[in-house]
Design a protein around this nucleic acid. Sequence first.
DNA 1: TAGGCCATCTGGTCCT
DNA 2: AGGACCAGATGGCCTA
Length: 215
Amino acid sequence: MAPHPLGAPTVQVTHETEQPFLGALHGEATCAASAPPSPAHTPRDCTETEGGGCRVAARKLRARRGGRSRPKSELALSKQRRSRRKKANDRERNRMHNLNSALDALRGVLPTFPDDAKLTKIETLRFAHNYIWALTQTLRLADHNFYGLESPAPPGGELGSPDSGSSGDWGSLYSPVSQTGSLSPAASLEERPGLCAPTSPTCLRPGSLAFSDFL
DNA sequence: TAGGCCATCTGGTCCT
DNA sequence: AGGACCAGATGGCCTA
């Protein structure tokens, strides 16, 4: 990979792991029949310590582990586990490669200056978000001009900005730092000299229009 | 050397 | 049962 040319942006990725509780499926954590619980996944552990919850969980656990099927030798089991793991690793690697390919494709349509500057993953996502927002604003303004309407552009008005919190789920992409306003996604890009964010009024890419040109 | 970014491995969970 | 998805852990590489 291309290392970050100018140091890392001062943003942090926070994992919002607030997944809805999906029910006691395994019962590893609080039920007797258990494998060592993963330290990473406690939120999904079984909390139904009373009633039938654990019995159901234990039954499912038994089923998952082969149930009444013919017992295999330790060697065969070990071989099978290794084989499955290896296949899973291959799939996972492939999946990540696909993800990176998509990210590269996204980088390819984003205007950066210099052209060979490579955005990091998080920068690419934030940049794309801002870029789409800027293009949307451009289209709206163009429409207003075409029909002779006045551009309302109220302060903090209906349109909002990527940083205004009106961006729905995308808001979760922003680090707490940027959400507090001290570091917008655009600003994070501007911290890297030579890299331009499309929403930056001070950034003009050769051969393209700065966002400020549309305002 | 510390810190950031990344690729990979791994185990858990959900879905088909 | 097997695949997809997810998040934590780990180690390598690079830069300030």
